[in-house]
Amino acid sequence: MAFDWLFFLEVLIAGLLSGAMYSLVALGFVLIFKASGVFNFAQGAMVLLAALTFVRLVEMGAPLWLAGVSTLMVMVVLAMLVERLVLRQLVNQAPIILFMASIGLNFFIEGTAQGVWDSDVHALDLGVPDLPIDVFGMLISQFDIFAAAMVAALVVVLAVFFQKTRIGRALRAVADDHQAALSVGIPLQTIWVVVWSVAGVVALVAGLVWGSKLGVQFSISLVALKALPVLILGGFTSVPGAIIGGLIIGAGEKLAEVFIGPFVGGAIESWFPYMLAMVFLLFRPQGLFGEKIIERV
């Protein structure tokens, strides 16, 4: 039997497109980890909060753009509260303490989001149907293409923001050396608010994409778990790493499911990424693109 290359390509592309969505969640982690040194356990809850706020506003009759802007504002207010009530109080504490605080934050946001809105499953329709279209004889989901395009646009905007603007440069400076950033007059508090807001925006985009695929419900906060193998692959401190890690995980799990799955009884899609991550931990613990450890001799 000849190998069906067209089918392989189709699976690969579907995998890459869903991988782009994993990248999105991983991106939120990387941003916050770099700038405030917190492994933000609450990233999944932020996705839930953003998606739930958006979908409820739409259900109340707000047009999509208005719901988007309002949700954005909610995420910015959240960033300010986190800075004021959590980060500012815990300045210069050990990373594990900040991590514990983010676990608390996770429960708080999950609880508040579902308390203020509700815990039902909501359908979210962004106007792009999840229907396959025919591209050179391959069937590819229209929605996945749309989602990947959104991710790409977001990444480009973020890259320009980080590389070209004064605030972006300050963010990278803070990521490198808090103390030194403080000494040249970069206000850490402002930077933290900006970073958490940006992570909020990323969470909103992730929430919209995942929400319209899976329905907006509590379980979308668990997409954060899928970000973990992505982070291990790509490195916790690298934005390109988060993107490429996501693509590898997405493509890897689909290809594994389709081409290896049948030999081992199938259903390996859900654990394959974690296996891959474990192999990476053994051989390259800093990830593909982890921060170069600069050492001069």
């Binding site: 490198d176 103390q179 921060e291």
Partner: peptide
């Protein structure tokens, strides 16, 4: 200007 230079290494 802090002791030990404290440059931003990745900039």
């Amino acid at each position: 200007v802090m002791e030990g230079r404290h440059c931003f290494e990745h900039l």
